[in-house]
């Protein structure tokens, strides 16, 4: 892993984001109705609409509008929300922060559950434990997250009254309350992800356990624990890292349902609100920020893979 590789990857991310921004901007252009229409409503007079369009710069050619928008983005100015009249940037970044907390905690919990389950299934291949893990996995994959969320909500929040059902409390202000509010969404998301990651760990472990070097490690007289962790798991985790990076994208964008159910104002929820209210600057900012986070997550995954396996040479 060299510095030049890293710089190249960064350049590639910038390039990717540029394309994303064109697509995002282009789509908001072809949507029926424009920002002026959505601000003034359906009963607006043509004169008022025209005046607002001039004010918002909507009378300019598309390319000029795009350049203007992109210039703003590069200065950290994502425009003003049509819905709230507030700057879009801070609003979206606050939401992203909440989503990232959810993402990191969910992925961490998921790994803590999925990796040992996968190892267990690989070691007990074809036996009860393997079948059990497989069953849980398929259940996890096939049950939609809103069902998982609802069941957890009913059991933990309603029956047992252990946790608050919905809402969000900033961690910085009330750490304990904040964590309590996070437990249910984190649990839901990680349970959904445990399924495929544990399957992945299992199949990778099965392969690695049959490898020559694991047999060699055993025949060198190393204790089973060392063989499993140092020699087998390390190699089995390399492909898993890539999959986990893809999950980052899923958790950020795909779990709007979970954010909805637990009333967690993450970036997914913000984006839904923005789409509902035709808040174009907010949609553009949300999509762009998500794409950037996703790209960075993949970069990190590639770096972790290179650290785990020195044969991977990026240049």
């Amino acid at each position: 892993m060299s510095l030049s590789w890293f710089l190249k990857r960064l350049a590639l991310i910038v390039y990717t984001l540029l394309i994303v921004s064109v697509v995002v901007f282009g789509i908001t252009q072809v949507l029926p109705g424009d920002a002026a229409q959505s601000v003034l409503g359906e009963n607006a007079t043509p004169a008022a609409l025209a005046a607002l369009r001039v004010k918002l710069g909507l009378d300019q050619p598309v390319l000029v509008q795009f350049a203007h928008w992109l210039g703003g983005v590069l200065h950290g100015d994502f425009g003003t929300s049509i819905r709230t009249g507030q700057p879009v940037g801070p609003m979206m970044f606050t939401a992203l922060g909440r989503s990232l907390i959810l993402t990191v905690l969910s992925l961490a919990l998921m790994l803590v559950i999925a990796v040992p389950l996968g190892i267990l299934a690989a070691l007990r291949r074809g036996r009860a434990a393997d079948v059990g893990v497989g069953l849980i996995s398929y259940l996890g994959v096939s049950v939609p997250e809103f069902v998982t969320a609802t069941v957890l909500l009913i059991v933990l929040a309603d029956w047992l009254q252990l946790l608050p059902a919905t809402g969000y409390v900033p961690l910085a202000e009330h750490p304990i309350e904040g964590l309590k509010h996070l437990v249910l969404p984190v649990l839901t998301v990680s349970l959904v992800l445990v399924a495929h990651v544990s399957r992945m760990v299992r199949s990778e472990m099965v392969d690695v356990l049959h490898s020559d070097y694991v047999r060699a490690a055993r025949l060198k007289g190393l204790p089973e624990r060392v063989v499993l962790v140092r020699h087998a798991l390390r190699n089995a985790l390399i492909p898993v890292v890539t999959i986990v990076a893809l999950d980052v994208g899923y958790v950020l964008g795909g779990i709007i349902v979970v954010e909805e159910i637990f009333a967690l104002p993450g970036i997914g929820r913000q984006l839904i609100v923005a789409i509902e209210s035709r808040d174009l600057p907010a949609i553009q900012a949300g999509a762009l920020i998500m794409a950037a986070t996703y790209a960075v997550a993949n970069l990190i995954a590639d770096m972790v893979c290179a650290l785990l396996d020195r044969r991977i040479q990026y240049d």
């Binding site: 070097y213 490690a217 007289g221 396996d309």
Partner: peptide, 25 residues
């Protein structure tokens, strides 16, 4: 006892050095 035998009392050289060494260590 077997852990002591393997690699301790009996050493073993394997067929293919390319696959019998762990690529990540």
């Amino acid at each position: 006892k077997l852990l002591e035998v393997r690699g301790g009392r009996i050493g073993m050289v394997f067929q293919d050095p390319a696959t019998s060494l762990n690529p990540t260590l």
